[in-house]
Amino acid sequence: PTIVLKVSPEELKALEKAGVEIEKIEKNEDGELYITLTPEALKKAGFE
């Protein structure tokens, strides 16, 4: 199962800087950012 999270541009930068593997980055028509994370990326980021 993949996880989709709504993030701010600042959060996205912080995640990328931390080396979190982001599978997909999407922006909706309201300009909101959503990222898709794999279970492996979540484990690496410390989420179980």
Rank of each mutant, 00 (worst) to 15 (best):
K43A: 13
E26D: 11
P1Q: 13
A14H: 12
L5A: 02
A41G: 04
T2H: 15
K6R: 13
V7R: 01
T2F: 14
P39H: 14
N28R: 12
K44W: 05
K43G: 07
L37W: 01
I22Y: 12
K24C: 10
L37I: 13
G31Y: 03
A45Y: 06
V7P: 01
T38G: 05
E11Q: 15
K43Q: 10
A45C: 05
E32P: 03
K43T: 05
K13P: 01
V4N: 05
F47S: 03
L12V: 06
L5N: 01
G46Q: 10
E26M: 07
A45W: 08
V20H: 01
V7E: 00
T38I: 03
P9F: 11
K43C: 12
P39M: 08
E11F: 15
P1W: 09
V20E: 00
E23S: 09
F47G: 04
E40L: 03
F47C: 06
K13S: 12
E26F: 14
L37D: 00
A18T: 06
P9C: 07
P9E: 09
A45S: 08
E16A: 07
N28P: 03
A18G: 08
K13W: 12
A41I: 01
F47R: 02
A41E: 14
V20Y: 02
N28Y: 09
I22L: 07
E21D: 10
K24A: 13
P1S: 10
T36M: 05
P39E: 15
A45F: 10
Y34A: 04
G19L: 06
E32A: 09
D30I: 15
L37A: 10
I25M: 06
L15V: 03
T2S: 12
I22D: 00
K17M: 14
D30E: 12
V20F: 02
N28L: 12
L42D: 02
A41T: 04
E29P: 09
G46D: 10
E11K: 15
K13A: 13
L37Y: 02
L12C: 02
K44T: 14
A18M: 13
Y34V: 08
K24E: 06
G19M: 08
I35R: 00
P9G: 08
Y34E: 10
K43N: 14
K43M: 09
K6M: 10
G31P: 01
G46I: 04
K43Y: 07
V4D: 03
E16D: 07
K17E: 11
E21L: 06
A18V: 08
K27L: 14
L5P: 00
E26H: 08
D30K: 09
P39K: 13
E32L: 10
V7T: 03
G31D: 08
K6C: 08
K43L: 12
K27I: 13
L15T: 01
D30G: 10
I3R: 06
T2E: 07
L42K: 02
E16Y: 12
G31C: 05
K43S: 08
Y34F: 12
I3D: 01
E32I: 10
P1F: 10
E26L: 10
T2M: 15
K13Q: 14
N28C: 06
I22V: 06
P1R: 11
A41C: 02
E23F: 08
L15S: 00
Y34L: 12
T38V: 04
T38S: 08
K27F: 15
E29W: 13
E23M: 12
L15C: 03
L37S: 05
L42W: 14
K43F: 04
E29T: 08
T36I: 07
K6E: 03
T36Q: 06
S8G: 07
E16V: 15
E32T: 14
P39I: 12
L42V: 08
A41R: 01
D30S: 15
K17Q: 13
E29H: 12
E48D: 13
G46F: 05
G31E: 05
E10W: 12
S8K: 08
V4S: 06
E10D: 14
V4P: 03
A14V: 14
E26Q: 08
P1L: 12
A14E: 12
E21T: 07
S8W: 04
I35M: 02
I22H: 02
T2R: 08
K17H: 12
I35T: 01
E23W: 07
V4Q: 10
E10T: 10
V20G: 01
K27Q: 14
E21H: 07
E26R: 07
A14D: 07
G46H: 06
K24T: 07
P9T: 12
I3F: 07
T2C: 10
L37H: 00
P1N: 11
K43P: 02
V7D: 00
A14S: 11
L15R: 00
L12R: 01
Y34R: 06
I3K: 06
G46P: 08
L42Q: 04
V20D: 00
T36D: 01
E29Q: 10
L42I: 06
L5Q: 03
L15F: 11
E48N: 09
E48V: 13
K13H: 14
K6L: 09
K27C: 13
V7L: 05
P39D: 15
D30L: 13
T36V: 07
Y34K: 06
A45L: 08
T38D: 11
